[in-house]
Write a protein that binds this DNA or RNA. Structure first.
Ligand SMILES: [Mn+2]
Ligand SMILES: [Mn+2]
Ligand SMILES: [Zn+2]
Ligand SMILES: [Zn+2]
Lengths: 140, 140
DNA sequence: TAACAATTAACAATCATTGCTAATTAGCAT
DNA sequence: ATGCTAATTAGCAATGATTGTTAATTGTTA
């Protein structure tokens, strides 16, 4: 996702107005690697701008996704998560704390059993324990 | 997933009764590689046994999943899909028809950026076009 | 055959998400 | 600077998949 400043230009070019709500979301999302949900973003936004509606958060997330600035991922946590990192990568979900980490694959997995299928995209969801959660279990 | 006959024994051993509804679902699921949803199973079941309730289908799917006879997978189609193939495999989803195919990986993908994370499971969802859908586009 | 598990109908409830309306506010092109 | 119009908001309703609940009925199996 581009910087708040670049998004300001991009939104205006797209005929979308740059409101304080949208600017706040630009800032909250920029360089955000926590893979937030709409709801967690709404909470973070409310702390700064009380009164911002969940509806507006959803709307802006949809806009950003359609503009290719965000990707939405589904890792089995029940709700969509939004990722300003639109590069080609995968995700690891901690079964302990639920945190989602970025994963980069060195080699594309070679497959078998897919004779007649042209793959355009692959997404891997790893599950396991993050470092912090492993440490917790060890000290218990 | 084991055969209907074996499941009959397993259910009785688990203190669960073997009803016609459950037997029908055993049969509909055995060797079923279509990755059906609860709803599609209910439709198929209704064709054979009118009156079978969706609630019973859900309940039996939950039982089978808890017994390890089924796995449930989430491939982004909105609803859970159930898979009697509980071996270690992955899935390819056709963006044209929505069909879900099994995928077997020859080599485990090597990762980068996951220093402090112990992976217990990985699931890959491929997206693309199946043979039939590719052919359709070609003839249009 | 009796105990009790399962099924069913008929709902309600959940949760994430989207839709809708009307009133109000405010961005920004000219 | 102003007006057109988009955006926001409150306040709902609706969706769709899934789970919960109750009570009446049926069916399984020890
Ligand atoms: Mn990511
Ligand atoms: Mn499968
Ligand atoms: Zn963790
Ligand atoms: Zn297809």
């Amino acid at each position: 996702m581009r910087s708040p400043e670049e998004l300001t230009v991009a939104f205006r070019s797209a005929g979308l107005k740059v409101t304080p709500q949208r600017q706040l979301l630009f800032r909250l999302l920029h360089d955000n690697s926590s893979h937030p949900t709409a709801d967690s973003l709404h909470s973070a936004a409310t702390a700064v701008m009380p009164g911002i509606s969940l509806r507006t958060v959803y709307q802006t997330l949809t806009d950003l996704t359609q503009m290719g600035e965000l990707q939405s991922i589904e890792v089995g946590s029940g709700s969509l998560r939004f990722d300003p990192n639109v590069s080609d990568h995968h995700h690891a979900v901690c079964d302990g704390c639920g945190d989602v980490h970025d994963v980069y694959i060195t080699k594309a997995p070679v497959l078998r059993g897919l004779d007649d299928f042209s793959v355009s995209d692959a997404h891997i969801v790893y599950r396991g324990q993050c470092g912090a959660c492993s440490a917790l279990v060890a000290t218990k």
